[in-house]
Amino acid sequence: MNKNQGSLLTSIYTIIALGITMIFFFPLWWSFSNSLRIPKETFTVTGVGIPFINFTPTLGNWTHQLSFPEAHIALYNSSFIAVISTALAIVVGLPAAYALARFRFRFPPNKDITIWFISQRVLPPAAAVVPFFVLWNMLGIYDTKFGMIIVQTTFIMPFVVVIVRQTFLDLPIELEEAAMVDGATHIGAFLKVAVPLSVPAIAAASLIMFTFAWNDYFFVSVLMMKNFTLPIYIAGGVDSRGVQFWFIAVRTMIAVILPLILCLLAQRYIVRGLTLGAVKG
């Protein structure tokens, strides 16, 4: 550490933070490292598994896995369900967030409606899955992407409602009033003024929602059969031949890549978006 970069204390904090980060990220690193090894090297590699130093890397596992249609189906299903669910949650959730921020409901009052949205996240998914299973079978949407999108949308929508509601609350109401005096309808003021100004919060909420829908294992495992998604596909690496660590590693990496890219793309919004609701700017 060089003296110009801060005091001794800052350096110590940085080292501690780095250490903690490395501990938490080690499994991910190990997966990456493992995906580049031949199966027999899974347990024999020494050190921390750095390619070219501790072992000779190979793309064998990757080419093997990516050549199977299952990987494509899982990737496609996961992407399709997560993207459509997120989009649907925004389309339905934004007006809800706006209504909660700008209108006063008497029965039930705004606070109760907001709590009700949050309660969807508090509810253990296991409590809801059996009714869903029965209903989805009756409606004939069991094991369909459509059915899964409805389920995911239901469970991720609270994020957009709660996060963006707070952003709407923090927006000066005069902006929308000015738009209405200037000739916009209330919906026009919402779409042309409130929504564009909430883009950072919407981006942050979208990313959280996308990740939740993308990662969900529980509902997919119960409500889908032939139509599986990436988490199920990863778990499928355990079969009669034992745990195939090398394949699981590849599948995990595939599952990480898309959210990671989205995260990097939305990075400048996320930090602002996540603090937007909390701190008045």
């Binding site: 000066p172 005069e174 902006l175 009033e177 000015a178 738009a179 005096v181 200037d182 003024v193 100004l197």
Partner: peptide, 10 residues
């Protein structure tokens, strides 16, 4: 048309 105290510029 209205001018607001905090201007309310978009």
């Amino acid at each position: 048309s209205m001018v607001f105290q905090n201007y309310a510029l978009y």
